[in-house]
Amino acid sequence: MTPKGRIRRAAAALAVLIATAALGGCGIRTTQVPVDAGPAPSRVPCEVTSQDLTPQAQPKGVPVRVYLVCASQLESVDRTARVSEKAVGSRTGMARALIDELAREPSSPEHEAGFATYVRGPLVLSGPRPGDPAGTLRLSRQPEDLPPAALAQIVCTFAEGRAAADGSVVLGGPGEYAPRGYRCSAETKERPEEPVPTLGALPSPSS
């Protein structure tokens, strides 16, 4: 190696040592590969325990489970709905109670846990009309006109409650549009802002 080559090599080695020392002095550790630490942890618990509720916050009634929005997803919440004995045995009566629960503002513990609802009242529910598919529930607003998250809340709450007929959620509106069937999928719970999946063949018309 020529004298000039040895000088260049020594200068390059010295530059590397200086850069390494500078990084060490700044408290920065060098790494050869990027580190993926994953998404930042969420501070929203999305869970309400019995310890969060006071005896006054637990009215007497029928235990129900509704779906609210938390951290951009649907999460279930256990509540107690005030339902008459006659309504308990009626699918339409239970559906009305669930709609009322969805339209109710989250309690203080639910709000602190990050829960919110997109269902806004007044939203009146009635049973099927003559010629409607079996199990149809009609809303005072066209289902497709509701915010996607609100419709997702209703469909998933009905699908897993006593308001669904054989797991099918068939909803209609106040007009003459034919009812449509909806299903609560895992994707619906994960992304309630997207359109709710519809069913294919609907149940036979009710008598």
Rank of each mutant, 00 (worst) to 15 (best):
L53M: 05
V69H: 00
L68A: 10
E47L: 15
Q73L: 06
E75G: 13
V66F: 00
G38E: 09
Q51G: 09
K60M: 10
D52W: 07
Q51T: 14
L68S: 11
G38K: 07
G38W: 12
A57R: 06
A40Y: 11
P63D: 01
Q56M: 07
Y67R: 14
A57G: 13
P41A: 15
Q58D: 01
E47R: 10
A40P: 09
L53Q: 11
V66E: 07
P59L: 08
V48H: 13
V77W: 03
P39C: 07
Q56K: 08
T54G: 10
S76N: 13
T54C: 02
R43A: 13
G61I: 05
R65E: 15
P39T: 01
V48D: 10
Y67I: 10
V44C: 00
R65F: 02
P39E: 08
V66Y: 02
A71R: 11
P41D: 14
G38S: 02
P55G: 05
K60H: 08
L53P: 00
K60W: 02
S50L: 13
Q73V: 09
V66R: 00
G61A: 04
S50N: 14
P55H: 01
P45Y: 03
V62F: 13
C70I: 03
D52E: 09
L74D: 12
S42A: 10
P39W: 08
T54L: 11
P39S: 10
Q58H: 00
K60N: 14
P55A: 02
D52I: 03
C46R: 05
R43F: 07
